[in-house]
Amino acid sequence: MDYMHQLGSLSLGSRLKRLSDTLMSEVTHIYNEAGISLNPSYFPLLTLIHHQGPQGITQASEMLGVSHPAISKLADKMIREGYLIKSPHPQDKRASRLGLSDKADQVIEQAKPVWAALQQQLHFIEARQSLPLLDAVNEFEQLFQEQNFKNNVLQALNREAQNIEIINWAPQYKDDFKRLNMNWLNTYFNGELTETDRRSLNSPEDYYLARGGYLFFARQADKITAALALRLCENNSFEISKMAVDPQAQGLGIGRQLLLTALNKARRLHADKVWLETNSRLTRAVKLYSNFGFTTQEHPKGKSSYPRADMYMELQLTKA
């Protein structure tokens, strides 16, 4: 079963990329069999200049609907391989134009029969489709631009984020604390539990609160979507522990709000430092910690008591 299909429209970009990679690979093999040395990714710029004449980078970017840096990078590569020649613009001496080399002209002539055969085969596939692919792509691209996709998504995320409330411990959140943390433990570490995990997850009020620590939760539309524990330790320090965000609520900045709340609490209590143990596989979490100023250090005890933890990070709150 193709899992991409189950993801529906969320996998559109990945599926288009997969289809593009497959087509590129097939065409590369066809070129090789035909004795043609040509990178399929050169086709749009190569044929644009062949049909429209020499082009500036900006002009080619606008004609192909591709970013200026992407065209510039592609052109540089094609110049190095001898397909394009850069020459001064006849009207604007500050600008340059891209033209085809003799090598490119020869390759184009070689490739024309191959392109005709490719087009014939693609037309054959399109004729068997219930919906024309190119028409659907054209329509999607137009609607994508009209809807201002990026801004709409960011605005929706901001609206969601504004509905997030950071709250303190209450007994009714005990099951949520365990549920949220077991989710990532099951996902990344096959549900591995140490004795410390069992004590902290089964009795968080005893393990954290009774020892001078704190528990924070994110509530969204009456649902607990994230949790974080702040454990009081020796030497006037706190440990960030058991931070977990519901997978369906990730990407809304909830982890950032929780971490900021915990750090502000530690600062108000005049803690010297905050530390944590994590795993390098949890790249999003590690990046978040780094963004807050946490730095990777040698573990003060040599190694963690958690077999899964391969990183120790600290944030100094007071100057040494």
Rank of each mutant, 00 (worst) to 15 (best):
R211L: 04
E239C: 05
I240A: 07
L215S: 15
I240W: 13
T196M: 13
I164P: 09
R231F: 11
I166K: 12
M182P: 03
M182D: 04
A227F: 12
Y188Q: 04
R179D: 10
A218E: 06
I240V: 08
N235H: 09
D176V: 11
F217H: 10
N236P: 01
N186I: 03
E165C: 03
L157T: 06
T225A: 13
R211N: 10
L193A: 05
S200K: 14
L185R: 03
F217N: 07
F238V: 05
R231E: 13
E192P: 01
S241C: 09
R159H: 06
N202E: 07
L157R: 15
L193H: 06
A218G: 13
D197N: 14
Q162E: 11
I164A: 06
S241Y: 04
A227R: 11
N163I: 11
N183Q: 14
R211F: 00
E205Y: 01
Y208Q: 04
G213D: 03
W184L: 02
I224N: 01
L154H: 06
A226P: 06
A226I: 11
A221P: 00
A227M: 09
S237A: 12
T225R: 12
K174G: 01
T225D: 09
F217W: 11
R219A: 12
F189Y: 13
N181G: 08
